[in-house]
Simulated assay, not measured.
Amino acid sequence: MYKRLLVTVLLLLFVFPCVASAANLTGKLTYWKQGKEYPLVNATVVVGKDIWLKDDGATDVVKGAVTAKTTTDGNGRFVLSGPAGNYLMIIWKANHIPSTGINVSLPGTQNDSISYDNQVGASGRHVYLRFEK
């Protein structure tokens, strides 16, 4: 009986804290185009402790260690799962001006918006996304 109790206590001490530290960041993202707001569909949402976005011509590069990433659904909503804590968030979608350096907490909620890039045809920027450490 004591052996079983000891095993149960050890499992609670070592396994449960790991499970409890997982958290979600939820939210809805939108974009602005010609003065109107729309859901930001199929956008990439990235969080990490020390991440940033580098402009490399037509390709934007997420630099640093990414903790978690996801994409928005047909309504611009997202759920991102990762260890509880404070992070930086990047919002990216092709042909839109990315948003970077957003401070977020997991668990938490973050609603935000970005702008459509009216100059993308002329500038050729914000077309592709790549990840590097």
Rank of each mutant, 00 (worst) to 15 (best):
41 V>W: 00
41 V>K: 11
41 V>D: 02
41 V>R: 07
42 N>S: 12
42 N>M: 10
42 N>R: 13
43 A>F: 05
44 T>Y: 15
44 T>I: 15
46 V>E: 04
47 V>S: 06
47 V>D: 06
48 G>P: 09
49 K>R: 13
49 K>L: 12
51 I>P: 01
51 I>E: 06
51 I>A: 08
52 W>A: 12
52 W>V: 08
53 L>S: 04
54 K>C: 01
56 D>S: 15
56 D>T: 10
56 D>M: 09
57 G>A: 04
57 G>Y: 00
57 G>P: 07
57 G>E: 04
58 A>F: 10
59 T>M: 08
59 T>W: 03
62 V>F: 01
62 V>L: 01
62 V>W: 04
63 K>R: 15
64 G>F: 03
65 A>P: 05
65 A>L: 12
66 V>C: 07
66 V>W: 01
66 V>Q: 00
66 V>Y: 04
67 T>L: 12
67 T>W: 02
67 T>S: 14
68 A>M: 07
68 A>D: 06
70 T>N: 02
70 T>M: 03
71 T>V: 13
72 T>R: 01
75 N>D: 14
75 N>V: 05
75 N>E: 12
76 G>S: 04
77 R>G: 07
77 R>E: 10
78 F>P: 09
78 F>Q: 02
79 V>R: 13
79 V>C: 07
80 L>K: 01
80 L>G: 09
80 L>E: 07
81 S>T: 14
82 G>I: 02
82 G>A: 13
83 P>M: 11
84 A>T: 05
85 G>Q: 03
89 M>H: 05
89 M>P: 06
89 M>D: 04
90 I>F: 03
90 I>M: 04
90 I>T: 09
91 I>G: 00
92 W>A: 13
92 W>V: 09
93 K>A: 14
93 K>C: 04
94 A>N: 14
95 N>H: 15
95 N>T: 15
97 I>C: 08
98 P>H: 09
98 P>W: 01
98 P>I: 09
98 P>C: 03
99 S>K: 15
101 G>M: 05
101 G>V: 05
101 G>H: 09
101 G>Y: 06
104 V>F: 02
105 S>K: 14
105 S>L: 02
105 S>V: 15
105 S>M: 12
106 L>D: 00
107 P>K: 03
107 P>C: 06
109 T>G: 01
109 T>Y: 08
111 N>C: 03
112 D>N: 11
113 S>D: 13
113 S>N: 14
113 S>W: 14
114 I>S: 09
115 S>H: 12
116 Y>P: 00
119 Q>L: 14
